[in-house]
Design a protein around this nucleic acid. Structure first.
Lengths: 160, 160
DNA sequence: GACCGCGCGTTTCTTTTTGGAACCCGTCGT
DNA sequence: ACGACGGGTTCCAAAAAGAAACGCGCGGTC
């Protein structure tokens, strides 16, 4: 199966990965959340080749994750749209996993202050309904309205 | 910069991506959370080539994300470890982003029941301290204990 | 106990995608 | 008018992915 076919699957994870599913794209996004906006800055900070960076930025702009703002004739800044900002939980979930499981005893490279409450925060995934942290063993996936048959490893009950 | 060099950066996202940062790995994990455990099932359901699947599973086992349990001599199941289960927020964040921004008007393919509270849940990233949803514009990254100098696009204040 | 098929890979070969480095081109400052 | 800079594109070699066939131990079956 090829890259673009993946995006056509009936799976939200697959469709998401068709846009952001490679390491450079996700690193570009992480830097965007740290304030990077320009081609040259992404390139130098990440060490990605210009070739690959150009193709990734192009894809992200086409997908609507970045907006390309001219700050001078022929020079642009790549800025996160609302759609792009909505990827924050993905990046933070990865950062937190790395902090927790791969820190090599040195502690997290970055910590985060949540300005509204003033505290250093640990980003936590919770249930929208009861507010408790989500444990995969306590969550049952159900067939939703957009599911086509045969796309799952096993049959699932209907949502209700 | 090459793949493995990325994992040595002082950045939790980069280290995380060195393990799970390609589309097939993340799709393997998504299926693992849906209950898939065997090589043949991953292969057939995802359509990934056997070659690539074998290399991804190998990396995930070496990293400690999967455990390889023999269920017969010479046959194994790949099961998520605690470390692997901890990737749930990453997968759910991607699923939710896809549901929200890429659903093509058909609705989510899957919905999720949180058994402890009984409700259909929307996984939400909140501040561990105040419980409010995290908005990237309201979070200030600070230098943490594990930060080496020069790894950031711009200088950052110290945590404290 | 020979045969068949399954699960789980490995091998081989071809096609895509990266990495690396040079090159291009319009604008800006001087 | 001239050089430097930002933001790419082009070219070639190296690495990774796709496709399909092959290997091999085990378990069931006659």
């Amino acid at each position: 199966m090829k890259w673009n076919d993946i995006g056509n699957q009936t799976c939200s994870v697959a469709r998401t990965l068709a846009i952001v599913g490679d390491r450079w794209t996700l690193l570009v996004l992480r830097n965007a959340f740290l304030g990077t906006r320009r081609f040259e800055d992404f390139q130098q900070h990440l060490g990605v080749t210009r070739h690959v960076l150009a193709s990734r930025l192009k894809r992200l702009v086409e997908a609507g994750v970045f907006r390309k703002d001219a700050y001078q004739p022929n020079r642009h800044e790549y800025r996160l749209t609302e759609m792009g900002l909505a990827l924050y939980p993905v990046i933070m979930a990865m950062a937190h996993w790395g902090d927790t499981w791969l820190d090599e005893g040195k502690g997290a490279p970055l910590v985060y202050r949540h300005r509204p409450c003033g505290q250093l925060t640990t980003p936590t995934l919770v249930c929208s309904e009861c507010g408790e942290p989500l444990d995969p063993r306590q969550v049952t996936p159900l067939a939703g309205p957009g599911l086509s048959p045969g796309t799952l490893p096993r049959p699932l009950p209907e949502a209700g």
